[in-house]
Amino acid sequence: MLTLRIAAGVEAASLVILLLNLFTAHLSTITSLGGPVHGMAYLVTIAATFLVPASPSARWLAVIPGIGGLLALRRISVAHQP
């Protein structure tokens, strides 16, 4: 779960940074560094969600780029509440 939390946070934060860069300065260094970071965080989020015993809906939510990991975390935490 810790891996999923970190990867989901990095995925969302990197997307925000990439979008801010796109709409403001459009610096190529931010794009060339942020793109692979976002892509790897996205893949780790999907893989970590599939490793957690969760509902199929949480797994499908993880596939949504950007906020899917955070949505999957929310779905998993709601499912595990007593």
Rank of each mutant, 00 (worst) to 15 (best):
M1A: 15
M1H: 12
M1N: 10
L2M: 10
L2S: 05
L4I: 02
R5N: 02
R5K: 13
R5F: 03
I6K: 07
I6C: 06
A7T: 13
A8V: 01
A8Q: 00
G9A: 13
G9T: 06
V10A: 10
E11L: 02
E11C: 03
A12S: 07
A12N: 06
A12T: 08
A13K: 05
S14F: 02
S14E: 04
V16R: 08
V16L: 14
I17L: 12
L19F: 08
L19W: 12
L19I: 14
N21W: 08
L22Q: 09
F23Q: 03
T24M: 14
A25E: 12
A25W: 11
H26E: 13
L27K: 12
L27A: 13
S28E: 12
T29K: 07
T29W: 13
T29E: 15
I30W: 10
T31E: 07
S32R: 15
L33G: 01
G34V: 08
G34S: 13
G34I: 06
G35R: 13
G35D: 04
G35Y: 07
G35L: 11
G35E: 15
G35F: 09
G35H: 07
P36W: 03
P36E: 11
P36D: 02
P36R: 03
V37I: 12
V37C: 12
H38F: 15
H38A: 08
H38K: 03
G39Q: 06
G39E: 01
M40H: 07
L43Y: 15
L43P: 03
V44N: 04
I46M: 00
A47I: 15
A48F: 00
T49F: 00
F50Y: 14
L51A: 10
V52C: 00
V52L: 08
V52K: 07
V52N: 06
P53I: 14
P53F: 09
P53V: 01
A54D: 02
A54H: 02
S55D: 07
S55F: 09
P56L: 00
S57G: 09
S57Y: 03
A58I: 00
A58V: 02
R59G: 09
A62G: 11
V63H: 05
I64N: 05
I64V: 15
P65E: 01
P65L: 14
P65V: 05
P65D: 11
G66M: 03
G68N: 02
G68H: 00
G69Q: 02
L70A: 10
L71I: 07
L71A: 14
R74S: 09
R74D: 07
R75H: 05
R75V: 08
R75F: 04
I76L: 09
S77W: 08
S77L: 06
S77I: 15
H80G: 12
H80T: 11
H80F: 04
H80P: 03
H80R: 10
Q81E: 08
P82F: 06
P82Q: 10
P82I: 12
